Simulated assay, not measured.
Amino acid sequence: MYLNSEIPQNEEQKRSWIKYQLKIQGKSLASLAREHKTSRQVLSNTLYEPSPRWEYVIAQALNKKPTEIWPERYEDGLPKEKLKV
């Protein structure tokens, strides 16, 4: 499927890549959620919407930095913040 170094830019492919990389390490979003005492849905939502805390957890499990997996969500190494008025 995908080599570990080939992180797809397409969002749908990226979500599949993340799940696949977790699977080949014997992990899943559900197992990460249990490990961090949260719901699987919280981690699953991170695949669709920015969440720096959970991006870090997923990236750490993949031995990556969040900026490597989601460069579009970061600027100068820091999470881009959505301004809510």
Rank of each mutant, 00 (worst) to 15 (best):
W70G: 15
E68F: 01
T67D: 08
G26L: 02
P71V: 05
E11T: 14
R73M: 08
A30Q: 07
E81H: 07
D76N: 15
M1Y: 06
E68V: 04
K84I: 12
Y48H: 14
A33Q: 02
K19Q: 15
L29Y: 06
P52F: 03
V85I: 08
E72C: 04
E11C: 05
V42P: 03
P79R: 13
E75N: 09
Q25F: 03
R73Q: 08
E35H: 05
P8G: 14
Q9K: 15
G26P: 03
S5I: 08
R40E: 15
P50N: 04
R73C: 07
A59V: 07
D76L: 10
R53M: 07
I7R: 10
Q9N: 15
K64Y: 00
R73V: 05
V85P: 11
V42C: 13
S31E: 04
I24N: 07
V42A: 15
I58K: 03
L47D: 04
P71D: 08
E11F: 04
R40M: 07
E12S: 12
P79D: 12
E35Q: 15
A61Q: 10
L78T: 08
T67C: 06
Y20P: 04
D76T: 03
A30K: 06
V57G: 06
N45F: 00
K23P: 00
I7E: 11
E35G: 05
E12V: 08
I69L: 03
Y2C: 01
A59L: 09
E11K: 14
V57N: 04
P66W: 02
Y2T: 05
T38W: 02
S39V: 01
I58P: 07
Q13H: 07
K80N: 04
V57W: 09
R15I: 05
W17V: 10
K84G: 04
L3T: 12
T67G: 02
A59W: 01
V85M: 05
E68N: 08
Q9M: 13
N63W: 00
D76C: 05
E75L: 14
Y74P: 09
S28E: 10
K19V: 14
I58L: 10
E75F: 12
L83F: 05
